[in-house]
Design a protein around this nucleic acid. Structure first.
Lengths: 136, 136
DNA sequence: TATAAACTCTATAATAACAATAGAGTCAAC
DNA sequence: GTTGACTCTATTGTTATTATAGAGTTTATA
C-alpha cells in the first residue's frame, strides 16, 4: 500500500490534485493508516492514470466522472460516451477556429507598427483605439 | 453624463464588468452624483471600447493596463508594445498547435468506437484505460 | 532517547475575468 | 406614497488546480 506521496510520484499527479480528486469523488475515499494517512493500492494507480489521460485530452472533471460511471455499468450502450466525445471535439474545433481568426487579427495589428517609432505614432495603439474592430 | 447602465448599453460591457474594471484600475474612479451613482462622459466610452477591443484579442487585463500606461506617455518608444504583441501572438500560436494535436487524438479516439456497442466493448473507454497515451 | 527532517493531515485562500446574488438605497413617474 | 427601474457595496461562485498555515505522524540520525 502506497502513501499519497508515492502515488503522486508514480502517477505524476500532485498530492493536492489527488486529494482534490477524492473530494470531487473521481476516486474513492482512500483507506487510512493508524496515523490517518491515506493508503492506496494498484487500482488507485490505474484510476488516476485514466483520469490523467482524460485530462490530457482536456476533458472536464464532470465529463470524466461521467465516463467513470459508464465504465461501472459495462453492459449499457456506449452512445453516451460517443455523444460526449462528439460534443467535446466540436468544442475544441470551435476554439481552434476562434484562435486562428484571432491570430490573423493580431498579426495584422502587429504589422501596423515597426520598432523604433514613438508611442504617439504607434499603429498598434492607434488601431486599438479605433472604434471599429476591423483593422485595415 | 451617463449612468453606468447607459454606459453599459453603449459599450456592450456589462455593468458588473465596468465596476470590475474600475476596481482593477483600468478605468479611473468615476465621478459620483449626489445619490452616489457613477457618472461617465464620452472619454469613458472611448476607454471602455479600447479595453473591449483588447479583450476581443484575448489580451489580459494586466496587458491592457500596460498598453494604457504606454498610451499616456506618447513620446516614448513603442518597443514595449511590440514585444508584448509578439509574446501574445506566440502564446496564441502555441495554443493553436496544442489544440490541433489534441483534436487529432480526440478524433482517433472517437473512431475507435461505433455506436451501438456496449460499454464493455467500447474502444474509447478501452483506449482511455490504456496506460500509454498513444492511441493506435 | 531526543530531535530533526520529511512527510501527512485539514482548512483556507489564491489564480482570471468576470457573473450572480443579497440587501439596501435612489430616482422618476403615476 | 408607492411601484418599478435603476444603482450601490459586499460576498460568493465559476474551473482545476496550486499554495499556503498550522498541526500531527513517521523515519532517520545523534
Amino acid at each position: 500500500m502506497k502513501k499519497i506521496g508515492e502515488l503522486s510520484k508514480v502517477t505524476g499527479c500532485s498530492v493536492q490534485t489527488i486529494r482534490h480528486y477524492e473530494k470531487e469523488h473521481l476516486i474513492a475515499s482512500a483507506e487510512r493508516s493508524e496515523g490517518n494517512f491515506r493508503l492506496y493500492d494498484e487500482s488507485a494507480v490505474e484510476r488516476l492514470l485514466f483520469i490523467k489521460h482524460c485530462r490530457s485530452l482536456d476533458l472536464s472533471l464532470p465529463e470524466i466522472r461521467q465516463l467513470l460511471a459508464l465504465n461501472r455499468s459495462p453492459g449499457s450502450q456506449c452512445d453516451d460516451v460517443n455523444r460526449m466525445m462528439d460534443r467535446h471535439i466540436e468544442q475544441v474545433e470551435t476554439r481552434i477556429q476562434e484562435l486562428t481568426k484571432l491570430n490573423e487579427q493580431l498579426r495584422m495589428l502587429r504589422r501596423s507598427c515597426t520598432n523604433r517609432r514613438t508611442v504617439e505614432q504607434c499603429g498598434i495603439l492607434r488601431n486599438l483605439s479605433a472604434t471599429s474592430v476591423s483593422i485595415g
